[in-house]
Amino acid sequence: MRNLTQTFSSSLGKKLIMALTGLFMCIFLVVHLIGNIQLFKNDDGQAFNSYAYLMTHFVPIKVISYLLYTSIIVHAIYALVLTTKNKKARPIGYAIQHGAANSPWTSRNMGILGTVLLLFIVIHMNTFWAQYHWGALPHAKYETSLSNPQEITVTAIPFDGNEVAYTDYIDSVKGTHIVISKDLYKIVVEAFGQWWYVLLYVISMAALSFHLIHGFSSAFQTLGWDHKKYMPLIKYLGIWGFGVLIPLGFAAMPIYFFFFK
């Protein structure tokens, strides 16, 4: 046990924690993006709302989500610890340090980018996650005709102080599939209707992009998973997958809603 605590308090151990939590968050981002793609479905949010329900009520996913929250906190705290230690390692700085000559900008600014992302996560979770859990959320009732699945009727159920349980049943009399869920979709539409909120998202996704362009492959380097054959692939994935595709995907949502909804 003592060995393990020593390991994780060593410089390399701390980096290991940064790498593991970071990679875990990267995996989450992929899942999150795939889930959120449902926002683009033109179904007045039915799929998205059901997905939101699943994410908050399915036990294995709940466990993972708590792991995720822990990761975010641990990643941030260790970043702070490491940064403080790193600052101490050079108490007197250079009059001139020409970092641009030897290292990419992203790699030198992970702290700032990370801080932007942390702020973003707080705002983002406050808007959606907190609202979903404790907020005065309206509900939506989706009635889909069983004979013609294209025919959907949506009824908004304003919040009346009582939470309505998630319902999913077949009304054999009416011949419809009825789903009643919290209408997170409506919150999304409202939030993404505000220009400053959209701007915040776009800026944050830019930060995410830069953070991951360095962070993703860097985590592999830290773990020691450096291989002449596979490292180029990981670098490619880090830049184009995590640095471009994912942030673009996320940024597309507020932009889409702002301009088209």
Partner: peptide, 17 residues
């Protein structure tokens, strides 16, 4: 690595500098 940590060097953040 243990000695390196004791000497007060900082941590690698993979900047490549």
């Amino acid at each position: 690595v243990t000695q390196m940590d004791q000497e007060g060097f900082g941590n690698c953040t993979n900047t490549g500098a």
